[in-house]
Design a binder for these strands. Structure first.
Lengths: 154, 154
DNA sequence: CTTGACCTTCCCATGGTAGGAAGGTTCATC
DNA sequence: GATGAACCTTCCTACCATGGGAAGGTCAAG
């Protein structure tokens, strides 16, 4: 029997309900690469290691990884996820703070969406006027090449 | 008719209708940084230089830069712009080729848009159920932390 | 000749993800 | 107890478009 906090062997860790990084990746949908990356960025705490220096993850570590995965699927940036994780772990948070982050993010998504929609509309309009045949005449290129109004960026 | 390809002085170049990189940037909305970058990437040909090694741009160079700027505003990638520029310069292109690129890009924009819309919808739904008050109970965090279905990536 | 605006090149950073090389660990099977 | 596969380790590179900044050269005007 090994003394308390000394690094353990992989098999033993598994027996105690720990998971290797590959298994954690499978179970959470976050690649092993990204788990290491998040650790190096400080988004998640440094994982415990076995004697062979393998990372091991507990069920609650997996829980956090799933949280991250889900938040990324919703388009939150790593910084935002850092905040969300903080609130998640803080039992005394006010849901108002969480909602504020969510609402801000919704607004950001809306901005992105309407930006893309405006591109799409312009391009669809151009394409609609293009014959799309073997002739060289093309309103799309004509438009792209035209000297348009204000060239200066915001 | 200008005698040779010998580099000229800046003042002389300006007199002949050439523009410095800073001026070109102002006039096209493409920053000087990006103009150099595009040149290094081969998107635009190497600029002519003065004896002092300053880049100079002709009116038609500016035209191409505006083309690039406009295409980027429409969300085309550099690779796509490379193709578009090729077609633009080729007087014998078929407008069909241009249209195909445009249509493909519209489809890509549509995919992005609906991806963002789906994120937005999920998040708005979560936010709608969150009281947003001083209490810690929060459906947004609850959802993020919940073990959802299939974690494996495509 | 000096000043200051403008230019040059070169390096570094962003953000999120992935690929790969070179080498060590674990574990099951012979 | 050796071998080989599967897995892990660290470290470096790349993507894409953009921008920041340093160190130094060029140019026009005073």
């Amino acid at each position: 029997m090994r003394a308390a906090r000394a690094p353990v062997e992989l098999a033993e860790a598994k027996g105690r309900g720990y998971y290797s990084i590959g298994r954690a990746a499978e179970l959470t949908g976050v690649t092993a690469k990204m788990i290491r990356h998040y650790e190096s960025q400080g988004l998640i705490p440094k994982a415990n290691r076995t004697v062979g220096d393998y990372r091991v993850y507990s069920a609650s570590d997996l829980h956090a990884l799933r949280f991250i995965r889900r938040a990324r699927d919703l388009g939150f940036s790593i910084k935002e996820i850092e905040s969300l994780l903080g609130l998640w772990r803080n039992q005394r948070r006010a849901s108002e703070q969480v909602k504020r982050l969510a609402v801000q993010h919704i607004a950001a998504l809306d901005r992105k969406i309407s930006e893309l929609q405006s591109m799409r509309a312009t391009l669809a309009d151009l394409a609609a006027h293009c014959q799309g045949d073997e002739r060289p005449q093309c309103p799309i290129l004509d438009d792209l090449g035209r000297c348009s109004g204000d060239q200066r960026r915001k």
